[in-house]
Simulated scan of single mutants.
Amino acid sequence: MLDKYFAKKRRDSLIFCAIMISLTLGAIIITEYDVVKGFTSIVKAAEWTSSNFYPDEKAMNRLPDILDSLTETVLVSIAATTVAALFALLFAMLGSSTTGVSGVFSSLSRGVASLFRNIDVAAWSMILLFSFGQNVLTGYFALFFGSFGFLTRAFMEAIDEVSSSSVEALRATGASYFSIIFQSVIPTSVPLLLSWILFMVETNIRHATIVGILTGTGIGFLFSLYYKSLNYSSASLLVIVIVITILLIEYISNYIRRVIL
């Protein structure tokens, strides 16, 4: 029996590998991609980076401007995430199978969350760009809508995961809907909700760079400006600052998660 099982697993694995190899070869042929040139260009790119993409003395003089733009980007990311989290919590309550008030509201909440979650932040930036133009508000709403969709779905799963037993117990005692929410759902779900919010803050700070390039604001706009003007030393310093900031925020988030979970 075991021999047949492992033989089937090996056969399935070989079939899967053959399909993947066929798709890869087909994609290379259709796109006329030069594999050899692609791999050799990595070495050339590394050589160019090491000789051009590094901060110099002139770039260090631009550090105050970079830090100002970075501060703006981080604050916008945090603001968009926290406000989106409030709306996401409301929709998650309505959409959750544990706390939903009716099937109509539950389906509507899940549909809205799915719509917003499946539109990328970059796409939101392009859509909103036509309405608000190139300003901070465009970047804020792009991050807000992306965060809202993701957090609504995450909050629904968190509420269903940790609150179902306590909600059933309170319902059995005849507790009101708001008593169940404030005495059971929120207290038991807070650690997971905070964890998702921290994750979204990290993600939005990464997204904010791309959003800034598209909307002409924040640290992304500054990077685009330096790079397009061939000021590679300042652009490299900006990248280093972004990486350090993301690592620092990730460290703080992980510490907070260890404390609350």
Rank of each mutant, 00 (worst) to 15 (best):
S224D: 15
V112P: 01
V185H: 06
V201L: 05
I260F: 07
R10N: 12
M20C: 14
T82M: 12
L14E: 12
T173Q: 11
L137S: 01
T209Q: 04
E202H: 05
V101R: 11
S96V: 02
I119A: 00
D34Q: 03
G212F: 06
H207Y: 11
S51K: 12
I210Y: 10
F144S: 02
I205H: 03
G111D: 07
K9E: 03
S253H: 09
S13W: 10
V241A: 12
N204M: 05
I249C: 07
D160K: 05
L63R: 09
W196H: 15
S77F: 04
G38M: 04
S131F: 13
L198K: 09
Y232P: 12
I127G: 02
L67F: 13
S229N: 15
I249V: 15
R11N: 14
F87W: 09
F105Q: 05
S41W: 07
R258S: 12
T203M: 10
A88F: 02
Y54W: 10
T245P: 13
L128K: 11
F178T: 14
I252S: 07
V241I: 14
L247F: 09
K9I: 15
I180R: 00
L2H: 13
S131A: 14
L67R: 02
R10L: 13
A123Q: 02
W196V: 07
M93F: 15
A92W: 05
N204S: 06
D12Y: 13
F145I: 06
K9V: 12
S233T: 14
N52D: 08
I159D: 10
T40H: 00
A59W: 08
A235G: 07
S107W: 07
L222N: 11
T24M: 10
A123R: 01
I28A: 06
Y226G: 09
I42V: 13
F39H: 05
L214Q: 04
V190K: 05
D68T: 14
I21M: 13
E250R: 06
F105I: 03
P55N: 06
T138K: 01
T31E: 10
I181Q: 08
G212K: 00
G146V: 03
F105M: 12
I213Q: 13
M93W: 08
A154D: 11
T82A: 09
G95S: 04
I15L: 15
A158V: 14
T173R: 03
M93E: 03
D68F: 11
L67D: 12
G100A: 01
G103V: 05
T49P: 05
S107H: 10
V190R: 02
V83H: 04
I244S: 05
F155H: 12
S131C: 08
D3L: 11
E202P: 09
A158I: 14
L193R: 00
T71D: 04
L25Y: 14
T31S: 13
A154V: 14
L261Y: 14
